[in-house]
């Protein structure tokens, strides 16, 4: 076993591309998460009212309404037909995420993402077992349950427990005991279930995945011929079941990651020392020939994960 198998995940990429280059999308993503949070916090903290409201519903610059489409859907099945403002806001959000990828919300906007990312980072550092791994389809069942409960009780059901809007609202309006819920999710992801909340349970992510299932923005393993099987992308990907079909597909299959579960977080692009992955659109299914400028290095022993 070579010494390389004990390198931390992403070490080779750091050596090749430098630390910044190997964390480009991670840094961009944190910036984006902070940016969206800051937009909401500028008002209550500094009196600069760019955006009012929360992720559930907001008004930007007094003209642009945005509404969470899942909350609207629950409201409708609960028996309330929302006013036009909310419907327009929901439609704008729906169309935007349908184009750029529904789960872009999860990795670039959602305030819970840094929490579960931190839990996963620590999980990897402590080398903990993956723990309880319910099926990836569990979140779809949870989504269906949420809609059924909303219909039966006439209450927007998921908002009674939704940690996303609770944390967001808590930061903007006052948190109460939301920190306990966030701590609970952190501990759950750290000790109980790796990638448990965002990857298996959260119905909001499931819903956004569904809306983005035909989205344009895609990660592609264009340069898959260069893959040296270091497995770093599998280690960092929060939905790593989506990589194989694109990366290990037989010749002639698409290199595009077309699964609606992909959050377009770009970590696979970051940690790949040989630049297998890149962002592209869903119609760009070209595969770089092995003779491309980046030559495939010699295959080497795979790192055990």
């Amino acid at each position: 076993m070579s010494a390389r198998t004990h390198l931390p995940v992403g070490q080779e990429a750091i050596q090749v591309k430098g630390w910044i280059g190997a964390h480009r999308f991670l840094l961009l993503r944190r910036t984006s998460q902070l940016f969206f949070l800051a937009l909401f916090l500028l008002g209550p903290w500094f009196g600069v009212w760019v955006v009012q409201g929360t992720l559930a519903g907001s008004l930007t610059l007094g003209v642009l309404p945005l509404t969470d489409p899942l909350i609207l859907l629950q409201s409708i099945v609960a028996g309330h037909w929302p006013e036009l403002t909310a419907l327009i806001g929901g439609l704008i959000v729906l169309v935007a995420y349908a184009l750029i990828g529904g789960r872009v919300y999860c990795s670039w906007v959602c305030p819970i993402n840094p929490v579960t990312d931190a839990a996963n980072w620590l999980h990897r550092k402590l080398d903990l077992p993956k723990g309880w791994q319910p099926k990836r389809s569990t979140r779809l069942w949870v989504l269906a349950t949420v809609l059924i409960v909303s219909a039966l009780t006439g209450v927007i059901a998921w908002e009674l427990v939704n940690p996303i809007t609770m944390l967001h609202r808590g930061l903007i309006f006052g948190a109460g005991f939301v920190w306990a819920m966030i701590a609970g999710i952190f501990v759950f992801d750290l000790f109980v279930s790796r990638h448990g909340w965002c990857g298996h349970i959260c119905p909001v992510g499931a819903f956004y995945g569904l809306i983005g299932s035909k989205s344009l923005l895609r990660v592609s393993a264009t340069n898959r011929a260069a893959c040296d099987d270091c497995m770093d992308c599998y280690a960092v990907c929060p939905e790593n079941q989506i990589i194989s079909p694109a990366l290990k597909g037989k010749p002639g299959t698409t290199p595009l990651i077309l699964s609606p579960d992909c959050t377009n977080c770009g970590r696979c692009i970051d940690v790949c020392a040989v630049d297998v992955f890149n962002f592209t659109h869903r119609f760009d299914d070209h595969v770089a020939a092995p003779s491309d400028p980046v030559p495939a290095p010699d295959a080497r022993a795979a790192r055990p994960i």
């Binding site: 009012q52 519903g57 909310a86 908002e159 609202r169 808590g170 309006f173």
Partner: peptide, 21 residues
């Protein structure tokens, strides 16, 4: 939908959003 826009537009800070727990 618990967005808090009514709270924001209340000029007398009468309204507040209920906090968890």
């Amino acid at each position: 939908i618990r967005c808090g826009l009514c709270v924001r537009d209340c000029p007398y800070d009468t309204l507040k959003l209920a906090e968890l727990g």
